[in-house]
Amino acid sequence: MEYSSRTLESLIEALCGLPGIGTKSAQRIALHLVQGGKNEAEHLARSIMDLHDKVSSCSVCFNLTEDDPCAICRDPKRDESRICVLEEPKDLMAVERTGIYNGKYHVLGGVLSPLDGVGESHLHIQELMKRIHPGISEIIIATNPTVEGELTASYLARLLKPMAVRVTRIARGIPYGGSLEFNDMVTLSKAMEGRLEVDS
């Protein structure tokens, strides 16, 4: 046995199953918890247990939440006429961090993937359709700029077109602090296509 304790070994194995954690990191975390105070371990254990007891998907936008509907869906200050469509809750967190968007969201739960047999029924597409009403002025499709993300964007655009709602796609371009010569041809082409007027 590599470890003197079965409990320690079991914890290290469990930690290894988490994304981004290898054996050495798992060992470091486990030893930290053993050597640290009992309160810290209890707090961590309780937080993990609470995740499944308290956190679930919002029934409106499918973001992760403790209250249903989530705080964003309930917030009267947010612009209800715009819905930003995203792949995963982590994408929503990234957009929220920017602080620039004040509309509502809709999390699809993935993207259409013909190679893996992921179709419309596997995603929250029908739920998005049900949210469209005359008060909605714009749907912003913010799926990732990948083959599957673009396919999903086109698919949604086709579905939404007859509903007389403006459908927009987030812009693709040069990352801030980047340099033109190191950008791939797709990014550069799309950046040229999506160029904007410079305000004087």
Binding site: A153, S154, L159, V167
Partner: peptide, 14 residues
């Protein structure tokens, strides 16, 4: 549905 998949399917997004 709603002509999602016509023979030529280039989609315009504003």
């Amino acid at each position: 549905r709603q002509g999602i998949f016509p023979a030529s399917s280039n989609t315009e997004i504003h």
